[in-house]
Design a protein around this nucleic acid. Structure first.
Lengths: 292, 292
DNA sequence: ACATAAATGAATCAAATGTATCAAAGTTGC
DNA sequence: GCAACTTTGATACATTTGATTCATTTATGT
């Protein structure tokens, strides 16, 4: 029986951390550039991954493929399927020439953003997502963690979710440490960790700790080789690419709202009731500026 | 100059009818199975198209490619763009379970989100935006304010901007009040206020105060009738619509990143230097999980 | 510390690949 | 009908390819 592309990628992701130095290097390249495997020769992929050719053969064999070619066939198959379905879209994203710097900047930002979002919406695994939602609703406690720029989104996720679910907790740096917030994480809990590469050490530490405690760890990041992926039981990937000098959180925000939307929908009336009660309360307290 | 995938396909389509019998056969296969060209050897494609190998070379040359390999590179490039550009998965087949409301939820979310973003990108006033950027870079101090869910984005905006601009300040509720943070706002300052309707009273209060002090107030909201609009000298509008029971911040996030991107681009090397210095500092301090 | 095992990369070889060549077959214009 | 031209496919060949081998380096356990 031949392996499926998804199986292969999953297997590789799982095996990745325990691979030897060179194999890891090649695995990283394969994970991040699956197209290379499908379209280039082994030697060319090896060159791009900066490893000698036999390493690619060894990688394939470590995934229990008979030969490297057997592995490549899996990747070719994935492309074939893809290109026959979506071939018309292959060259879709065109940068229309702008008249100014700002125009060019906006256009390229638009292209990458819409591209990332389209890809996210079209390719996210529905069943997997549903399964994650289920574990979020049945967890004893849900911890949300994100540092640096990701902290804003972690904060947002927690903020909205906690309007309906009091058992959600945001992990923050209080007094320069986060130990006491995480020491009671156990197997009944779920941790949602947000961190595009390069990963904040503290986020990974929390994920690692939770992972080793048997908790479910939902990792939101941008590549399977992210340190965060190692300690995630469930990975949600989306691009953080951007033409700017900082990562874009637009697609990650969409992913977060996707989760929130499904969470709310799942708990139906409960969530709606909670939110409308909160709204009423806020109005009473004058938290909203009165309508004119 | 290298040809684009789209060009090539277009050219081939146009030339197709006038090709000779055998070339037509090969062209048909190429058009219907572009993935084959990207992933298989010429001889294999020729075999599948049921033509002798040299015919493929001739097809390529008839499209004014130097060699068949030159043509294949175009096809490879298209695949590469797809699979590596968007992080991970290349091939994707989803088992959409018939009744799934999750699918419906995602689709409607996708539609509103892409709609909002497209509208934002296509309709935002470039000159106005540029002008806002200018005032942000020349301000004495820049205050960022946002409450409730908007606070996360305000925090994000401030976080990224302050990596390059130390004169940015985030307004927060410390000790239940925000008076002393805003009492010194003057006409040389700019306030960026984020609040979709219904507007948080505190955000509007800050805007009002700044507005009356003669400061520039950049209001980011979703309608011109929002209370925040009243006290804004410059309005940036974008939709916060969503099929969910809470507002969507995806488009607002994009708007914020747009501003950040232009800010950074405007200050060119300064911003880049600051960011890379910060990155280095973070590495020194071990804030990132080390690469394996 | 040593011995054993694992990982690594240079060298090698047979198989395959892309291209060029050229003779045969087919087409066109007069 | 014939000459000039184009199209076609078998063959040949240098290059590149994937896999193996084996000596060397590196890691591991005792």
């Amino acid at each position: 029986m031949t392996k499926s592309y998804q199986e292969t990628v999953g297997q590789l992701t799982k095996a990745y951390p325990s691979l030897s130095k060179q194999l890891k290097k090649s695995a990283a390249h394969v994970l991040e550039h699956p197209g290379d495997v499908a379209t280039l020769s082994m030697r060319q992929v090896a060159a791009r991954a900066d490893v000698p050719p036999p390493t690619m053969t060894r990688l394939a064999k470590s995934l229990e493929f008979e030969t490297y070619n057997a592995m490549r066939d899996v990747y070719r198959g994935a492309i074939e399927e893809f290109s026959s379905n979506h071939s018309s879209r292959a060259g879709e994203l065109q940068i229309t020439n702008g008249t100014s710097d700002i125009e060019a900047s906006l256009q390229s930002f638009k292209n990458t953003t819409l591209g990332s979002l389209t890809h996210l919406f079209d390719t996210i695994d529905r069943q997997h997502l549903q399964q994650i939602i289920l574990s979020l609703t049945t967890a004893r406690k849900v911890f949300v963690v994100g540092m640096h720029a990701s902290h804003s989104l972690a904060n947002y996720l927690h903020y909205v979710a906690s309007t309906s679910f009091p058992n959600w907790q945001l992990i923050t740096h209080k007094n320069g440490e986060l130990a006491h917030q995480v020491e009671h994480i156990n197997a009944d809990d779920v941790v949602v960790a947000i961190s595009p590469t390069p990963c904040a050490a503290d986020t990974v530490r929390v994920a690692k700790l939770a992972y080793e405690a048997g908790a479910k760890v939902v990792g939101i990041t941008d590549t399977r080789t992210a340190p965060l992926a190692t300690y995630s039981t469930d990975l949600l990937l989306t691009s953080a690419q951007s033409p700017h000098f900082f990562e874009s959180y637009v697609a990650i925000a969409a992913l977060v709202e996707m989760i929130l939307g499904l969470l709310m929908a799942d708990s139906e009336q409960l969530a709606i009731d909670n939110i409308s009660r909160l709204e009423r309360r806020r109005n009473e307290l004058g938290e909203y500026w009165p309508d004119q």
